[in-house]
Simulated assay, not measured.
Amino acid sequence: MFYRQSGIHHTRYAATRKLWPLAADRRLLGGLLALALLAPLLLPELYLNSYLAPWLIWTAAALSLTLLMGIAGQLHFGFAAVMAIGAYTSIHLARAGVPFELALVGAGLAAALIGCVFGAAALRVKGLYLVMATLAMQYLVSWVIINVPAISGGAQATLATPEVRLLFIPLDGDTALYYTALGWTLICTLLLLNIKRSSVGRALVAVRDKDFAAAVIGVDPLRYKLLAFFTSSFLGGVSGAILAFCYYQAVTPEQFGFNVSIQLVAMVLVGGLGSVIGAYLGAGFILLLPIVLTNLLAWVAGLELFPVSFNLIAHIPLMVYGALIIAVILFEPLGLAKIYDNIRKYFLVWPFRHAQR
């Protein structure tokens, strides 16, 4: 059959640590990667710029938060502030004539340093107290951005992104912007996949499960908590810069409000805490599903089979969207990634009876 483990014999430890030992997984991944690379040729610009590119960028942001919440177990409800720091830092550096590659690094470092300052609260507190510390970061960063004209230009100001080049290629077309977003998302994906199977990843998991027990076996919780905040904030800062240059192309303080932080947490939780594929599924669920529901309802209303008010059209997708989130959490608390994993494991043994539970 096309999806079997038979015939795979591990003779070296390196073989057991492969990311995709099944040939079917490698074929599926290759097909998805080919579709992603050919998307500018297959999709209209509207779908490429309005759906696919933002989905990839928000997936990178969700992967950044997954490293902190899913792998290290540290709660963060102010991640939109981290992305805001990266976005504004990159724009100011690019306007000062810094190459875009260095501007991205500078954005990540600025977000990582400020994120570590507030993440230091994780060294002494956890749970709801840590949530309060990250909420303080969200509101403090938002206040500073709004009230310091040197950063944002003012509360109602819009800061436009300058023209830049990435690897000597000007980012002035839809295709170039899409491939930049795709490249950064792939980098985040490979980074998390390899962190999860490294000694650093195992140390972060040990700290997540029980930091006192991790300290007993020689893992320094303070060091690895700060490392998790630094790395996650660095990735989040670069994701914020990519979001500003490749999608918004102009930033305002309202684009990185508290509601954005809640959406990022929802992406991680609904997709599957600690899952890489869950970040993709969660970002698609939170970002694209409301758009699909709205378009579907507008199409049904256009048929004029029954009278529907515009107010109802605006609220029904939100109600259905909220009900679907509750349904996912109730029926599969481990998220959409677990549903995918259940389907995958079913086909590993299909059609034998012991696959049925």
Rank of each mutant, 00 (worst) to 15 (best):
Y3D: 08
Y3H: 12
R4M: 00
Q5R: 12
Q5N: 15
S6Q: 08
G7T: 15
H9N: 15
T11E: 15
A14E: 13
A14W: 08
R17F: 01
R26V: 03
G30I: 02
A34V: 15
A34T: 14
L37K: 02
L41P: 07
L43I: 15
L46H: 15
P54K: 05
L56Y: 08
L56E: 07
W58D: 04
G70S: 04
A81I: 03
M83R: 11
A84E: 03
A84L: 12
I85R: 11
A94K: 03
A96F: 09
L104Q: 04
G106M: 13
A112S: 06
G115W: 06
V117I: 14
A122H: 04
L123I: 09
L123E: 13
R124P: 04
G127Q: 11
L135Y: 11
Y139K: 01
Y139M: 05
L140T: 15
S142W: 06
P149H: 00
P149G: 01
A150N: 12
A150C: 13
I151H: 09
I151K: 12
G153Y: 11
Q156E: 08
Q156A: 10
L166I: 10
I169F: 11
I169G: 07
Y178N: 01
L182M: 06
T185L: 10
I187W: 01
I187R: 08
L190F: 12
R197V: 14
R197K: 14
A203V: 01
D209T: 02
K210L: 09
F212K: 15
A213Y: 13
L222A: 10
L226W: 00
T231G: 06
S233Y: 11
S233L: 00
L235Q: 07
G236K: 06
L243V: 09
A244W: 00
V251C: 02
P253H: 05
I262G: 07
Q263R: 10
L264Y: 04
A266D: 09
G272H: 09
L273M: 07
S275T: 07
S275N: 07
V276E: 04
I277D: 08
I277C: 08
A298Q: 08
G302Y: 06
E304K: 12
E304H: 06
E304G: 10
L318A: 02
G322Y: 02
A323H: 02
V328R: 05
L330K: 14
F331D: 01
K338F: 04
K345L: 12
K345M: 13
Y346K: 13
Y346F: 15
Y346Q: 14
H354S: 09
H354I: 14
A355L: 04
R357F: 11
R357C: 13
